[in-house]
């Protein structure tokens, strides 16, 4: 019954971290997920932790995450995801949106919440 917990680590070429110190995106609705990104010195790599009730898709999660991290050249970020049955397309879409949010300028954030 317990939740399924997965951990991955990837290293992209020429990795670049996010602008904000940390950033949060999304809601754990049915078929959806939330993403927490934290800037962290990880020697250029990205560590990912995923918590989900879904089993049997660990390899798909690994592939989706790797594709996202390689295509965005992300590095030195710790990512935590709480998932509730999101499909791979929703996962990819949310990751892109979360990254866009995490790369907003800090000033912009302070002024505009």
């Amino acid at each position: 019954m317990a939740l399924n917990e997965m951990k991955f680590e990837f290293k992209a070429e020429n990795p670049k971290s996010i602008n904000k110190g940390w950033s949060h995106f999304g809601v754990v609705g049915s078929g959806d997920m939330e993403i927490l990104m934290e800037k962290m010195d990880l020697n250029g790599s990205v560590q990912v932790k995923i918590v989900t009730p879904v089993t049997g898709f660990d390899n798909v999660w690994g592939m989706v995450m790797e594709k996202f991290i390689r295509s965005s050249n992300l590095g030195d970020v710790y990512i935590e995801i709480n998932d509730n049955n999101a499909t791979p397309v929703v996962v990819s879409m949310r990751l892109r949106q979360a990254l866009a949010d995490a790369n907003k300028q800090e000033e912009e954030v302070d002024e505009d919440a």
Binding site: G31, V54, F57, N85, T87, P88, V89
Partner: peptide, 8 residues
């Protein structure tokens, strides 16, 4: 169709 439907 999406590659996966609800409930994966």
């Amino acid at each position: 169709q999406e590659t996966f439907k609800e409930k994966l």
